[in-house]
Design a protein around this nucleic acid. Structure first.
Lengths: 183, 183
DNA sequence: TCACAATTTGAGTATACGCTCCATTTTGGA
DNA sequence: TCCAAAATGGAGCGTATACTCAAATTGTGA
């Protein structure tokens, strides 16, 4: 949408404001008014750059997803992947919770976002299964996928628990899951 | 609140309508108008019996929680508990998702509901740890708690995946987790 | 039967939300 | 320098929400 420098800068401000708000007050608190207020922009300017409020939220969440799995990482170990997951969750817990919320409720437009999340899951599953195959030499490909699926499920569940109890020892248990998986 | 028979009956109708709606259209679709419409009641009558919309939602979710863990079940095995969990999730997937949504977002009043869910989790954890101790004779109490924690996390994660992909083989993988846990 | 409390009604309030419209100003290529 | 396109400000629209209130009706115990 934006063509001129001014437009590009406001666009960036809006995206940043949205990311900050999602991380601080969650999806519910990230209203159009709040976004525009923090970005020092009026509603009219916002809609000159974005088709809807949903659009900017989708963009922020998509960027967060992309950031957590930057490359296929061919030779990553299970431990590496678990550490990356820990980083993602602990780096911005509220944004991680928003991700879960969107996935669960289909809060956004049902269509594109959910498909994106599902695709992201499949990609991650493949990478995790590769790492499991590498870490457990004798394992069958099918069993590796199953173990990867269980590992990911456990990590998601632990993240859920963390959202519920902020003092929860998420990292410690996540590492225990990794041990179990490669044993 | 209700003193007369008429009041008790409408109260029951409202609770039932709310439960149905949560199961069919989720938290977002369960508006006051929808509840009153399905219960054939006007808004004024609703507020004569309930302090808020939140109150009836909390009540329905609390009842659902109570139903899934009716008794301490002293001699339940890990397999029994996992089967009960499968039953809960597959019996009413949308209500299970609502439960997750409330837990994650703290959508309701922050206070009572989240504490209730956390307490419910602790109770369940204790029961699961007991079953693990029974199924894995030599295990230390501390390790049993850790394994139970991981088992529960994996089950929650699998439930999350099921919410994302309705065709997901939730039951099959849940049983695999049980095998892993007692091995 | 009767008095009074419980219940029900349904119009109405307050508020928040996402979003639109359009006059005005700014931008940057020709 | 000119001028069309882009960007901006800001009032305001439409809608949906949870919730309130006074009046009418109904149920129950005495």
């Amino acid at each position: 949408m934006a063509r001129y420098q001014a437009g590009l800068r406001t666009e960036a401000r809006i995206v940043e404001a949205t990311r900050d708000l999602l991380g601080e007050v969650g999806l519910e608190g990230t209203t159009l008014k709040a976004i525009c207020g923090r970005a020092s922009v009026q509603a009219g300017s916002f809609y000159n750059l974005f088709a809807s409020k949903e659009a900017v939220v989708v963009r922020v969440v998509s960027e967060a997803i992309a950031a957590v799995a930057p490359e296929p990482a061919e030779d990553a170990t299970v431990e590496d992947l678990v550490e990356a997951y820990i980083q993602f969750i602990q780096g911005d817990p509220t944004l991680a919770a928003v991700y879960t919320e969107i996935a669960i409720t289909g809060a956004l437009n049902d269509g594109p976002m959910r498909e994106r999340i599902a695709r992201h899951h499949r990609q991650r599953l493949e990478i995790f299964a590769g790492a499991v195959r590498q870490s457990v030499p004798g394992i069958s490909p099918k069993n590796a996928v199953t173990r990867a699926e269980l590992l990911l499920a456990a990590l998601h569940g632990l993240a859920f628990h963390l959202a519920l109890e902020p003092d929860f020892d998420f990292a410690g248990l996540a590492r225990r899951v990794a041990e179990f998986t490669v044993s």
